[in-house]
Computed example of a mutant assay.
Amino acid sequence: MAKDGQLPALARTGIAGLDNILNGGLTPDRMYLIEGTPGTGKTTLGLGFLLAGAAVGEAGLYITLAETEVELRAVAETHGWSLDSAQPVRDGPRRRLWRGSRTDAAPPERGRARRDDLAR
């Protein structure tokens, strides 16, 4: 709650129909997990949310283990969005992103993480 006792302004998702269903957007300062099968709009929602935040001066971070910068830019383009102001940050080859915390989990073949390995 804001210092004056008022509820904080909702964070727009960047998707007008979803904002309407949510009565204006998401409650700020919360963590949201978006899950779904391929093609359900997770990337669209994530990019839309970040772009809506950027439009009001907020910083954002998009972390992906599967999509390339080219793929993300293509998704944005299909919605008429521009990622020209986005600055990609890379942690090097994807194999560096794999972190095994279980002793029975062996690194994936050729050092590349498969989605099944990351979900464990």
Rank of each mutant, 00 (worst) to 15 (best):
A106L: 06
Q6P: 04
M31D: 13
Q6V: 08
L26F: 11
A2F: 06
V70Q: 15
Y32A: 10
A59N: 09
K42D: 13
Y32T: 15
I34L: 13
D84N: 11
N20Q: 13
E109C: 04
L33H: 04
D91F: 05
P28Y: 15
T103N: 11
D116F: 00
T37S: 13
R120C: 01
A113T: 01
S82L: 08
K3H: 10
P38S: 00
R112P: 02
W98E: 15
R112A: 09
D104R: 01
D29F: 12
L10F: 15
G14T: 00
P38R: 05
F49C: 10
E67D: 06
R94M: 11
T103Y: 09
L10S: 14
S82N: 02
T44F: 11
L65A: 12
A76S: 06
G57Q: 06
G48Y: 01
L118F: 02
A54L: 05
W81S: 07
P38I: 03
F49H: 11
R94N: 08
T43I: 08
I21E: 15
R99I: 12
G60C: 10
R112K: 14
A113I: 08
A52V: 04
E67W: 02
A11E: 13
R110C: 10
L10P: 02
I63Q: 02
L118T: 08
A54V: 04
L65I: 02
V70K: 12
L97Y: 00
P108R: 04
D116M: 04
K3C: 05
Q87T: 13
L97Q: 12
R30T: 10
L83V: 02
F49M: 09
G100E: 13
R94V: 07
G57N: 14
G5V: 04
T27Q: 10
G39I: 01
I34Y: 13
D116A: 06
A106M: 12
L72V: 03
L22H: 00
P38L: 00
G25N: 13
P88D: 14
L26H: 06
R110D: 15
E35G: 07
D29P: 00
L10M: 13
D29I: 11
G92W: 10
I21W: 07
T64L: 00
L97C: 04
L47W: 03
A86K: 00
L118N: 05
R112F: 14
L61C: 09
V75F: 04
R114S: 02
K3R: 12
R120P: 02
G36M: 04
G100P: 15
A119T: 07
N23M: 13
D117W: 10
A55Q: 14
A74S: 11
T43C: 01
L22W: 02
R73M: 10
M31F: 12
A52S: 03
V75C: 12
R99A: 02
Q6C: 05
G14Y: 05
R96P: 03
L33V: 07
N23A: 14
S85M: 05
A76E: 08
G48W: 00
A76H: 03
G24R: 03
A16R: 06
A74I: 00
T43A: 08
